[in-house]
């Protein structure tokens, strides 16, 4: 069998199905194997990345080398070693002790929810704009012109008449 025809046969539907199978299987194995942070040190790191250093400019406790950050790191380490299971609990605990402004991730309630909602809205707007652009181009290519202002006025008049 020549390389050329082998290549063509590999690229058949079966080849793509095999690809899909390999990818899904690998992702499934990888995702279930995910054990999160492995050591206590890694957990301390993961938590301290989510807390701001109270006395520096915008650095996290993880990055900062200030005394306050060190105190918070020590506190987190103590909590982790004491066996607190939930990262969020530890973060709430630290936030209570040092004031709420130390949280680095906006909450999903109140005004801070905007930080999450607006990016999603931006994506929706972008994709919708693309959709309408392609629709317009398709109509133009098909020879159907866009409605003119006159057309729109005509429809508005007709609908106003209908309501009356």
């Amino acid at each position: 069998m020549s390389a050329r025809s082998l290549n063509r046969r590999l690229k058949s539907t079966a080849g793509w199905v095999a690809l899909l199978f390999v990818v899904v299987a690998a992702l499934a194995v990888g995702a279930t194997r995910d054990t999160g942070p492995q050591s206590a040190g890694d957990r301390v790191d993961a938590i301290s990345r989510r807390i701001a250093c109270p006395e520096c400019d915008g650095e996290s406790v993880y990055e900062s080398r200030s005394r306050a950050s060190e105190a918070i790191r020590t506190e987190i380490r103590a909590q982790v070693n004491a066996g607190r299971a939930d990262d969020d609990q530890i973060i709430e605990f630290v936030a209570e002790r040092f004031g709420g402004q130390v949280l680095l991730v906006p909450r999903s309630t109140g005004i801070e929810a905007l930080a999450w909602a607006l990016p999603a809205a931006a994506l929706v707007v972008g994709v919708t704009a693309l959709f309408f652009a392609f629709r317009r181009w398709r109509l133009e290519a098909a020879g159907v012109p866009e409605p003119t202002d006159d057309d729109i006025a005509l429809v508005a008049e007709a609908r106003a008449a209908e309501r009356e």
Binding site: R49, R50, A52, G58, S60, Q101, V102, L103, L104, V105, P106, I111, E112, L114, A115
Partner: peptide, 16 residues
């Protein structure tokens, strides 16, 4: 935005 609307200081950090 948060400071203007609610007059409190927040930090939006790397995890976001």
């Amino acid at each position: 935005l948060v400071e203007a609307l609610q007059d409190r200081r927040t930090v939006v950090g790397a995890p976001y």
